[in-house]
């Protein structure tokens, strides 16, 4: 039986002049729907490359990536954009909100691109999501007017705008204080509780009490794959 997210013998290498750098080496990975997964590793371990494979931002040099029954690596750029909008919500380390649009505008733009939410329901959905992440009062402010934590909450709300089943976060708390980090992690846990698959990529040390599963990468390969119930 196939998993919700399935990496089969995925390798990714980059070539420059005579040097070939292998960022990922024969990764086999299966993640089930509703799992809360942390992918950890040091700088250069292959975390970002793996995240790029997950989100369709990059394609494997060898191997296949299947997510929710779609062979992601076979999609062209325009189909990939639509697929990504419908299936994956991405949260970036530096929030990457559109600075010239209000928080509400950022959410509406994401819905506008994908078009899966009826246009007359978009504003209500935006407000509901902002209420869910606790920043509805800032809906009409520009991102620069918000604190780092609030911006990250806004980024999470935007990632959820099109109700994707998967949320991928790249160092989501890397720039935040410990209190805000806790709040964000609680938010992710709530999303998992609501049936979302949440994958967090981080270089920080994480506790296995926070995640269902922790996948450690080292030199482009899976060094450890531990579940909450596995022995420490």
């Amino acid at each position: 039986m196939s998993s919700f997210i399935q990496f089969n013998q995925v390798s990714r290498w980059f070539e420059s002049s005579s040097v070939r750098f292998e960022a990922l080496k024969n990764i086999d990975l299966h993640i089930e729907q509703g799992e809360h997964v942390a992918i950890i590793g040091k700088s250069g371990s292959g975390k970002s490359t793996l995240l790029n494979m997950l989100t369709g931002i990059d394609h494997p040099s060898r191997g296949t990536v299947q997510i929710n029954f779609t062979d992601v690596h076979t999609l062209n750029e325009s189909r990939l954009a639509k697929w990504r909008g419908e299936n994956i919500g991405i949260v970036f380390q530096f929030f990457q909100l559109i600075p010239t649009l209000s928080i509400r505008g950022n959410l509406l733009l994401a819905m506008d691109f994908v078009g899966s939410i009826p246009s007359n329901a978009r504003n209500d959905r935006a407000e509901a999501l902002l209420a869910q992440v606790g920043i509805l009062q800032h809906a009409d402010k520009l991102p620069a007017a918000l604190s780092g934590g609030e911006q990250q909450r806004a980024a999470i709300a935007r990632a959820l705008a099109n109700d994707p089943p998967i949320l991928v976060a790249d160092e989501p708390t890397g720039n935040l204080d410990s209190k805000t980090t806790e709040d964000i992690q609680r938010l992710f846990a709530d999303l998992v509780g609501n049936g979302k698959t949440v994958i967090v990529v981080t270089h920080e040390t994480v506790l296995n009490t926070e995640y269902d599963r922790i996948i450690a990468l080292k030199d482009g390969a899976v060094a450890a794959d531990t579940s909450r119930n596995s022995p420490q």
């Binding site: 931002i57 750029e77 325009s78 954009a81 990504r84 990457q96 994401a110 691109f113 990632a159 705008a161």
Partner: peptide, 16 residues
């Protein structure tokens, strides 16, 4: 350019 990357990452197609 970076913003184009973000737009594409949140679901915008090239034509959009």
């Amino acid at each position: 350019i970076r913003q184009i990357g973000i737009l594409k990452a949140i679901g915008a197609s090239r034509s959009q």
